[in-house]
Design a protein around this nucleic acid. Structure first.
Lengths: 217, 217
DNA sequence: ACATTAATTGACCTTTCGGTCAATAAAGCT
DNA sequence: AGCTTTATTGACCGAAAGGTCAATTAATGT
């Protein structure tokens, strides 16, 4: 047996309980917003006394921040090692596809971010400044290089990125509107492909690229 | 003098006070969300006793609904008399442009709608069903006719409409993110044209249309 | 002028909010 | 074993929430 780093019983149950609480909080915050979800609701949902939540996380703010911190990892993926030498069509198609999948599969998390940004991103400002901004800068530079090499049309690279974000997140954040308008009860299995294909068609062709066939595999 | 429909002094002041309250409520709800904005805050902002608000609008719910009702008119404009005979490029370019202008000029209203939809559109469901859905159906039919006539590429017309909505609203709803990422403090006069041009380029070219020159007039 | 109806508002109600605290239980350390 | 530290939790707190009410004031119809 490998020498673990002391799996204290305390540490184990602490982690377990914290995750229980964080799961409940994530769901409630995303459905009701920061003000709409109360500590007692989280307590009831997580089946834990309210005072216990305040013991782990010092305040409602603390709990909210913990929820956000835990989510952030998920949403940084994609476009990670992209360089100017990569093929724009492949890179962008895959990025759009992964974003659509994320939006359809994790709508709660997407909405939690959305409502956070809607309110001026009080808890994300710092993160945006120190993480997202440099990340974006790097991608934008790659886009610009593609434009300089005439691989894609010359448009503002920031707006290109925003267009991808906007179109993909829309299906998570405004799900209720989309479903109501389309007269559906929920997304079905074909929707991910359908949405990906539509968005990819418009955006890729829109910047002068060939649209890849939808991969059937 | 034309015989007005009795401009009672009562009715006049009632209307005036109600608008005072609705303005304050619109601002606060859009900044803080339904739960985040309290009746006393609205009262203080509108410089009116809280009990007076509850006299006019029977409850917080009632006030919120009144705010939404008042806004809805603004957001129905555009694409109104479009037919299959119209020129797709002109129609869509103008629609995108008007949407961008609205997003930049009325971000509060856009965000209020967004946070409403984010929470499942409890107050808008009925409106979506009875108004938006038929409206959309009609536009989608026109899009489809354009596709059948090979005027634009064949993609799902719903997703085309969603793409326009998503990209334009993004600049209002996620303004704080956009500004943080671009390292700006606020949108300037050139941004409306810049955003319109970028979005129109991608979407119009993306469905097989020529991108109109930006109209300088 | 006067009775009636609508508007205004301060005081007050209940409920729920986020948060504290002290008492108890459990686990860890030597 | 016994001592120390960490967890757990019911009871409780002041503040603020949405909402009611009764008393007062101001317009309106006749």
């Amino acid at each position: 047996m490998t020498t673990q780093i002391k799996p204290n019983k305390k540490e184990v149950t602490r982690e377990k309980n914290q995750n229980l609480i964080l799961n409940a909080a994530e769901q409630l915050f995303s459905q009701l917003g920061y003000e709409g979800a109360s500590m007692s609701m989280v307590a009831k949902e997580a089946q834990v006394p309210k005072a216990n939540i305040l013991y782990y996380f010092k305040s409602k703010d603390g709990l909210y921040e913990a929820v956000i911190d835990r989510i952030i990892a998920h949403w940084n993926l994609g476009l990670d090692n992209v360089t100017a030498d990569d093929d724009p069509a492949t890179v962008l198609y895959n990025y759009i596809k992964s974003k659509v999948i994320l939006a359809i599969n994790e709508p709660f998390q997407s909405r939690l971010f959305a409502s956070e940004i809607l309110r001026g991103a009080p808890y994300l400002q710092n993160y945006f400044r120190t993480n997202t901004r440099p990340w974006v800068k790097q991608k934008v530079d790659v886009f610009q290089a593609w434009m300089d090499a005439k691989k894609i049309d010359a448009i503002d690279p920031y707006h290109l990125l925003f267009t991808i974000w906007a179109t993909t997140q829309y299906y998570a954040d405004f799900q209720s509107e989309v479903l109501l308008v389309m007269n559906k009860l929920e997304y079905d299995e074909t929707d991910v492909a359908q949405i990906t294909q539509s968005i990819a068609h418009i955006i890729l062709k829109g910047i002068g690229l060939k649209v890849p066939e939808q991969s059937k595999a």
